[in-house]
Amino acid sequence: MSSQTFVRAVGRPVPKASQGMDLDLGPVVHSAILRSTLHRYRREADLTQEFVARHLEWSPSKVIRIEGGQSGIRKTDLEALLKLYGVTELREVERLLDLARSARERGWWHRYQGRLEPTFLSYLGYETGASFIREFQAAVIPPLLQIDEYADIIAGNQIDDGTDRALTVEVTRRRRETLAWRQRPPRRLYLLDEMSIRRHVGIRIDPGVMPRQPAHLAETVETDPSVMIRVVPVSSGAYAGMNGAFALLQFQDGLLDEVVYREGIGVLPAADRRVLGYREAFEAILEDALPAEDSLELITAVAEEMR
């Protein structure tokens, strides 16, 4: 992730990216950027949460909820915090007010509340605003690379958790479309196990699903320069990460630290000690993977074999 570049304003370092706000990032990322910025300004002012609460005549829990994202922040409260922290540069104040307004909006994933796991909905919010997505999948093709027929079959073979099959396919399609519509789509790097492209998913239903799926992978890599796929060959033997898929998300201009998502665990913030382990695991898997060109050749060859 690129380091932050700062400009000096009224005794406070202000991120260069504060000159504008990328509306593509969505409310979850805007909220996280706002919370991170407020936390940084408070620490730079050498103030404790207890002092802030006492000075503003708030309850200590209110400051904790604001910085922790458990509650939104009103315009008057935000202005009071910024004044206390010595942040008076007009452009920066307006940026943070814009972030607060955006954070109160509803993302496209909100319509699925009560129908999908809250931890997954939170991940969708982060994914929508990521600038670099790194994902490892051992058993299946990553959802953002799945064709609809493949996604439908995979959804139909999941252990029954009460999630509607058609809903899973719908959300997968919406995720793909959302990233494609962004003004600056994220870069994406996928690590796949060779068996995920060789497994003849759907052979008892529609034998044509494979090879269409690996052919779609090859076409995506060839036509979209923001996407790279690396395949871990079976000849590599055992390798780090075989026990489960995970994703690492980075964000533009270093305004938000990298987060990790793993199904069943949820989104892990950068401060979580487990994040380093996932970073190291991804790099270790990457070392075992074929080069990009060889991976594309293998994917193309598998598609031809399945035909």
Score class of each variant (00 low, 15 high):
Glu67Ile: 06
Leu116Asn: 01
Gln158Asn: 11
Phe132Pro: 04
Glu92Gln: 13
Gln158Lys: 10
Trp109Ile: 01
Gln146Asp: 04
Thr76Pro: 03
Ile73Arg: 12
Val87Tyr: 05
Ala80Ser: 13
Pro143Tyr: 09
Trp109Gly: 07
Leu81Gly: 09
Ala151Thr: 01
Leu116Arg: 01
Ile73Ser: 11
Gly69Val: 03
Tyr123Ile: 05
Tyr85Thr: 03
Leu145Ile: 09
Phe136Leu: 07
Ala155Ile: 00
Ser131His: 06
Asp148Gln: 12
Thr119Ser: 14
Ile159Tyr: 12
Leu116Lys: 01
Ile154Gln: 10
Arg165Leu: 04
Phe132Asn: 12
Ser59Ala: 14
Lys83Gln: 15
Leu116Pro: 01
Tyr123Val: 08
Thr88Glu: 09
Arg74Met: 12
Glu79Tyr: 10
Thr163Val: 05
Pro143Thr: 15
Ala100Thr: 07
Leu145Tyr: 04
Leu145Phe: 07
Arg91Cys: 11
Leu124Ile: 03
Arg104Pro: 05
Ala166Pro: 00
Asp148Thr: 10
Ser131Met: 04
Asp98Trp: 10
Ile64His: 15
Ser71Gly: 06
Lys83Ile: 07
His110Ser: 11
Arg74Ile: 11
Glu89Gly: 09
Ile73His: 02
Pro143Phe: 10
Arg115Asp: 01
Ser131Gly: 14
Gln137Asp: 02
Gln146Thr: 01
Thr88Pro: 04
Gly129Tyr: 06
Gln158Glu: 15
Leu145Trp: 03
Pro142Gln: 07
Lys83Ser: 14
Glu149Val: 08
Ala100Tyr: 10
Trp108Gln: 00
Arg165Met: 05
Asp98Leu: 10
Gln70Ala: 15
Trp109Val: 02
Thr88Ala: 10
Gly162Met: 03
Ser59Cys: 13
Thr163Cys: 03
Gln70Ser: 13
Pro143Gln: 14
Ala155Gly: 03
Arg134Asn: 03
Gly162His: 04
Ala80Cys: 08
Gly156His: 00
Ser71Thr: 11
Ile147Leu: 13
Ile133Asp: 06
Glu57Asp: 15
Leu96Lys: 08
Ser122Leu: 14
Trp58Asn: 10
Val63Glu: 02
Glu149Gln: 12
Gln70Val: 11
Glu135Arg: 09
Trp109Asp: 04
Pro118Gly: 01
Tyr112Ala: 00
Arg101Asn: 11
Gln113Val: 13
Ile141Met: 04
Ile73Met: 07
Trp109Pro: 00
Thr128Phe: 13
Asp160Arg: 07
Lys75Asn: 15
Leu145Asp: 06
